[in-house]
Design a protein around this nucleic acid. Sequence first.
DNA 1: TTGACAAATGTTAGCGCTACCATATAGCGT
DNA 2: ACGCTATATGGTAGCGCTAACATTTGTCAA
Lengths: 340, 340
Amino acid sequence: MAITIADVAREAGVSAMTVSRALREPGKVSAKSLQKIRSVIDRLGYVPDPAARALAAGRTNVIGVIVPSVTNNVFADVMAGIYSRAEGTDWQVQLGNSRYSPLEEERLVRTFLSQRPAGLIISGIDQSAATAAALRSASCRIVQVMETGPEPFDMMIGFSHLEASRAAARHLVAAGYRKPGFIAARLDPRTQRRLEGFRDIVREAGLIDPRRIITTPRASTVTLGCELTADLLARAPDTDAILCNNDDLAMGALFECQRRGIDVPRQIGICGFNDLEMMAVANPAVTSVKTYRLDMGQRAMEMMIAALSGEDPRETWVDLGFEVVARDSTRGPAPVSRIV
Amino acid sequence: MAITIADVAREAGVSAMTVSRALREPGKVSAKSLQKIRSVIDRLGYVPDPAARALAAGRTNVIGVIVPSVTNNVFADVMAGIYSRAEGTDWQVQLGNSRYSPLEEERLVRTFLSQRPAGLIISGIDQSAATAAALRSASCRIVQVMETGPEPFDMMIGFSHLEASRAAARHLVAAGYRKPGFIAARLDPRTQRRLEGFRDIVREAGLIDPRRIITTPRASTVTLGCELTADLLARAPDTDAILCNNDDLAMGALFECQRRGIDVPRQIGICGFNDLEMMAVANPAVTSVKTYRLDMGQRAMEMMIAALSGEDPRETWVDLGFEVVARDSTRGPAPVSRIV
DNA sequence: TTGACAAATGTTAGCGCTACCATATAGCGT
DNA sequence: ACGCTATATGGTAGCGCTAACATTTGTCAA
């Protein structure tokens, strides 16, 4: 039926082993054989069977990637970075979607590991005990992305969500806002840490007010940003700034304020998180915490490929940092409100 | 090293074949054996090796999915739909990202087919000749998503981009706009057809003006929507409506108009494409052509699974349609401009 | 020409599983 | 008790490839 390595070997007048070598270690095959084999491969359209390869060699060229969402911009960008660095190499990316479920993540890790992957790229540092155990005893390389933390399984690249939200909160306080609130959807561990960062700084400044912290387990959307903003303003109408857990919510907050005739930034300041390109062109332009998502994916893949190629003494723990990009939406409250 | 089926068989006091059957056709194994085998599997933590399975059986449980982009909302939604229907089944989704390149798509199809997938879900109807040939001679089931067209390789689910953009253009004309323009980024085949639909209707209405059609090969972003709108207004300042090839561009158009103090919808009407949830909460709410992306992914997977389960006499060609959701952004031009 | 060594190529066995067919066992009517 | 069928289980072979070792061929100095 399909062309096998034996067919190629016969046509080329060499043994199967030589064909196998020509494919994987061309340097160990004479130029003459190599040329002949390659022409036969082209003519017959031979493609090696990865299953047979995996079974015989005991390993694959698969790099598994596990993300909590495929629709969330953040992970989509990381994925795009990963794919862009995989393209043109022999490494094959395989994507798993855990849908924010630790159980599903555990199942995915098991499935991946049963395939003897060359490597695994996994999001975050909050794996379940079972998942962590499986990963620790895994024989493949691992890169954790999205966050930095103290005890990587292997390699790690991300940034501190805690520090990032602290910086954003500090920015709001420094801009003169005195009644800042926080809205968040989908309370995953990263969101939790961002809320923690907000709490730290606002408490420190003596501005904490639990009424101004609104969260929901629902998935984040712009529409939800409107709703959470409405909730916040219903519970604490004098709120003068909103730190939004992501940019979708921030856009929603902006739209809701516009609709109510609330002046942004003079009555309410708005700050987002991730700095989607959209934020810079909104009216007013929205302040956000810039994160390096595409870069994260690309460099995660680079680290993985370097490690798999045996170039071990490379960086294995990278903090990409972040940047609070101050824009008009947090230029500060109206002077009059400070006087009152 | 790892647990194999032979280990399980030995522990359970049966042959490897019986274990294999217990896993794939439990109905053909006695209740007693089944129970024993299952308890041993649990105890040892046995997971079948998919490579060995694939090699022995000559087929896999992999369903390959090829999309042109992982960051584009549209494909992300379709992917989410696909993943949601795959969860809990034994089918394993494997994602390929062609990055809008026909060559990369061809490579991906070859790679997937070499793995003897159970099925392939591929975007669109514009495959290269080589890709089409490979797909036609493939022995797996195929679902084409995103578009409808006359000659599916196998199964198909999508909608007519031509008809959708015609409907949107008709809506603009019916709302009273007389100088409609069109902006588009990333001229993939679907974009081309949408442009065609716009041209059809606007020409028919005697309102065509080539100056008002602005396209670019660059990837679509909100920022680019601003730029294209600026271009359009520079080339044809009297433009009174913009049909945007997608919602990112539409948001950009809206932001640009806001910045310039142009009244939407009275001076310029704006219509997007896809109806992202954001459109309904913008100010003004933006008209858009609603498409059923999540549904498309879910039903594509359902069709695939049904076909693979042998339930053949099901629907194999589905037009999901679309809906022009009219909102404030196209309520019509100011009366005064009609008098003039 | 010869031996020594490196480079190139071949042989054998087996990765873990399932298709296929053979055999054993149970259930049942007569 | 017998044969018959249906159900359950096992044995054998092989999927396509590569690791490990074995063998052949080429190269060069003495």
